[in-house]
């Protein structure tokens, strides 16, 4: 599959502090790529370099086959959607007027406003003044704005950090819908459940370095125990080997109606992150 983002030996220093040390990765067209790391690990710096808001100290970053510097041009801006902490809304205007401005800037018909508001669970809120919205609603409007022009490549920096579980689910459904339509999504998050629910591949970033990169499923399988935890009707938990040696035991639990639930003994992405970096995601 074609790479839509290619990053090689990327480095960024702010004075003596090195935010990115030697970062190399690629993002394939149509995938959701998760960039996971705690605060200060270099996630936002990477997004800013990829969206031409920051110049790298060394290394290269390409998107659509051109240097990210060229993403400043209209041709590429039209293909890209960005939600970061420095893309805000106009507080004195209502929701509709905020989105209408971006419809005009991107050449999108106004009926898209209703569609994107439904995607972020804010249908019918068009006339509300932005200054009166909660932090979570503001975050959803910012996301709706990025969805307006159905970008080929969407950069999302902690897109659900201020949302409750119901609205997070809505946003996740919206992102999966965009992915189905072919949008490539570069997502930074420190929410492991979000990464597991959405991402085709994830990179663990710590202190400006990628420590691990693979699909969440593979990462968990590679580090899993070859056992299952079985919950029985009497409330006890039993560890059963996954191989043929455990088959008789499992058959016995099933045939006697003792089996309540079975869980594979894989670590969570959070566990793996702590194992690899020695740091918790927070």
């Amino acid at each position: 599959m074609e790479n839509i983002i290619e990053v090689t030996s990327l480095q960024k220093a702010f004075g003596a502090s090195r935010a990115l040390k030697d970062v190399t990765f690629n993002v394939k067209r149509g995938e959701i790529f998760g960039f996971l790391g705690p605060s200060g690990s270099g996630k936002t710096t990477t997004i800013k370099i990829l969206t031409a808001q920051l110049k790298p100290t060394a290394g290269s970053a390409y998107a659509f086959g051109v240097s990210t510097e060229q993403l400043k041009s209209e041709k590429y801006r039209q293909k890209v959607g960005i939600v970061t902490d420095n893309t805000a809304l106009y507080g004195r205007l209502n929701v509709y007027d905020n989105l209408k401005l971006y419809c005009d800037l991107y050449g999108v018909p106004y009926q898209r406003i209703g569609e994107v508001l439904r995607m972020v669970n804010l249908a019918g809120e068009e006339r509300k003044a932005v200054s009166k919205l909660s932090k979570g609603m503001l975050q959803r409007i910012t996301l709706a704005r990025a969805f307006l022009h159905e970008p080929e490549l969407l950069f999302l920096d902690e897109p659900t950090s201020a949302l409750d579980p119901v609205n997070t689910k809505h946003i996740h459904d919206g992102l999966l819908h965009l992915k189905e339509k072919g949008t490539t999504i570069f997502l930074t998050t420190h929410d492991m459940n979000e990464a597991e629910a959405l991402c085709d591949r994830v990179a663990f970033l710590n202190n400006g370095e990628i420590r691990l990169l693979d699909s969440p499923k593979k990462l968990r399988q590679q580090r899993g125990e070859p056992t299952l935890t079985v919950e029985l009707a009497d409330g006890s938990m039993v560890i059963v080997p996954k191989g043929p040696e455990g088959a008789d035991q499992m058959f016995r639990y099933m045939s006697t109606g003792q089996l309540v639930s079975v869980q594979s003994n894989h670590p969570t992405l959070g566990d793996i992150f702590v194992e690899v970096t020695g740091r918790k995601l927070a």
Binding site: E74, N86, T87, L89, Y90, L105
Partner: peptide, 14 residues
């Protein structure tokens, strides 16, 4: 001040 200029800068507007 309100971080809205960056939104315009990141749009396709020249």
């Amino acid at each position: 001040e309100k971080n809205t200029l960056r939104g315009l800068m990141l749009s396709p507007a020249s």
